[in-house]
Design a protein around this nucleic acid. Structure first.
Length: 483
DNA sequence: ATGTCC
């Protein structure tokens, strides 16, 4: 049994155990309630992460943490690349650059509610969802290679969106250093027709309302475009689909081959396969993973284009007229090179965030110009039954390399959820509660039942109390489409 | 998460 010490109301520590090979202590952000319902394997996994070469300060887990492949989902680990720090696909996730995008409208609930079924049905029709779904875009392999090197910038150059969309996307929609030559042909095959598709599992698109009582910081909300009581917004969650999955799979295999024999890295859990960041294999994965990041930004950019078209058709006004503007697009499955203060030194760290969101403080490089003095917006998707949040980064986020939670976090396996609920009944019950849901799969819908997730309000309370971020507004769902 | 096992 692992020793977990309470540091504060929202912070818990597994002390460094040299016999286990821990290089740093492990820390979990959670309230007592969240710690009690935390998956036992999270402790084991975060302890294993603490043994990885080059890890700086702490192996961290966010309040929405749960068991994942190698790293827990909710895991944050910063590797010092000048001190043998590694890069690990398990610390990024199979769904590279899975993330959230938030879009405002100038419509209010009373204008949208009467047409929510029509709107949701139309979104369901126009945004391909489900396992193996294919998009409208027909790209050649050469075009796709450009997409994965240019990201959302390619989309805007080809008529899917505007310059402002790019300014309001993490990395401005295109991360530097993506190299399509580092990506397998199989990955390209899988991604080729997946631009502009939602996917399955917990990927969804939701029409939400910002109720007056759920705006916590008027000034910040206003600056982010939440200005009217009961304003309607659109939030969606998706990633790099089969493409990112294949990139992760390819490099996991490569890393497993070289990790022990070539680099003498001994890891207890094969799922933590890794390679030194400064090695040919590490650098190749980094450049390929960046293609996954760009594919995902492009995916969300094309989906936004579909959303604008649907709203425009339903409400018979142009997207500009309807004020369909982006608040932000955040990644929550990445590893990025960032400068952070460690003790009294600035270090170059490869920050793995797996099911964890970057939350940069006011003034930091990387925060969009128009939000520079406010801090980086953070978009947190809850379950379809509960609600979602808009947060902002704060200076005290330095303790977690400026990272916070990414969502509710599951408390129950998909298998168990499927046994407990029926998708059809769930859809009916949700409709009674004013949430119109469409899904490609009844089983998939049951898996996403709100009760299979942690309490989003508790997760956000933990993150805010711990000083990882600040609440701006909470959104309530009225329409949802999922794969 | 994922053409949910090449």
């Amino acid at each position: 049994m692992l020793q977990v010490e309470r540091i504060s109301d929202t912070l818990w520590e597994i002390p460094r155990d040299c016999e286990k090979g821990m290089r740093v202590p492990a820390r979990i952000y959670a309230t007592e309630k969240l710690i009690q319902e935390m998956d036992e394997t999270v402790y084991e996994q975060i302890t294993n992460v603490a043994t990885l070469p080059g890890i700086s300060q702490y192996a961290l887990c966010m309040p929405d943490g749960h068991s994942g492949y190698g790293f827990p989902i909710g895991g944050v680990a910063a590797m010092d690349v000048e001190q043998g720090g590694v890069i690990s696909p398990g610390g990024i996730g199979f769904d590279i650059n899975c993330g959230m995008r938030l879009v405002i409208t100038n419509l209010v609930e009373r204008e949208v509610k009467p047409r929510i079924k029509e709107l949701t049905n139309s979104l369901f029709k126009e945004v391909p969802a489900g396992v193996g779904s294919a998009g409208i875009l027909k790209l050649t392999r050469e075009e796709f290679r450009r997409v994965i090197e240019e990201g959302a910038r390619w989309c805007v150059a080809n008529g899917y969106g505007c310059e402002e969309d790019l300014a309001l996307t993490e990395e401005q929609g295109c991360i530097d250093g993506a190299d399509a030559l580092k990506v397998s042909e199989r990955a390209i095959d899988r991604g080729l027709n997946q631009i502009g598709t939602l996917g399955s599992g917990n990927h969804y698109l939701e029409v939400q309302v910002a109720r007056k009582e759920n705006v916590f910081d008027q000034e910040l909300a206003h600056a982010f475009g939440i200005t009217a009581p009961d304003q309607v917004v659109v939030m969606f969650h998706c990633g790099s689909r089969g493409f990112g999955h294949q990139v992760a799979t390819d490099y996991l295999q490569i890393f497993l081959r070289v990790m022990e024999n070539k680099y003498r890295i001994k890891i207890l859990d094969r799922e933590l396969a890794c390679a030194p960041f400064n090695s040919p294999e590490g650098q190749n994965y980094f450049a390929a993973m960046k293609c996954g990041i760009n594919m995902s930004f492009a995916n969300r950019q094309v989906i936004l284009h579909h959303i604008r078209k649907v709203f425009s058709t339903i409400f018979q006004r142009s997207a500009e007229d309807l004020g369909l503007r982006m608040v932000y697009d955040v990644a929550h499955n990445t590893a990025k090179l960032e400068r952070h203060r460690v003790g009294n030194q600035e270090r170059m760290l490869l920050v793995h965030r797996k099911g964890a969101t970057r939350a940069f403080a006011p003034g930091m490089a990387g925060v969009p110009e128009q939000y520079k003095q406010l801090g980086q917006p953070v978009i947190i998707g809850g379950s379809m039954e509960t609600g979602s949040y808009l947060l902002v980064g704060v200076p005290s986020g330095a303790q977690s390399f400026f990272s916070t939670a990414h969502g509710s976090g599951r408390t129950m396996s998909r298998t168990k959820a499927r046994k407990l609920w029926r998708g059809q009944k769930l859809q009916h019950d949700l409709e009674q509660r004013g949430i119109y849901v469409r899904s490609t799969s009844w089983a998939g819908l049951a898996e996403e039942a709100g009760s299979a997730y942690k309490d989003i309000d508790e997760v956000i309370h933990a993150a805010e109390t711990a000083g990882l971020c600040k609440r701006v507004a909470r959104f309530s769902p009225i329409g949802n489409i999922k794969g």
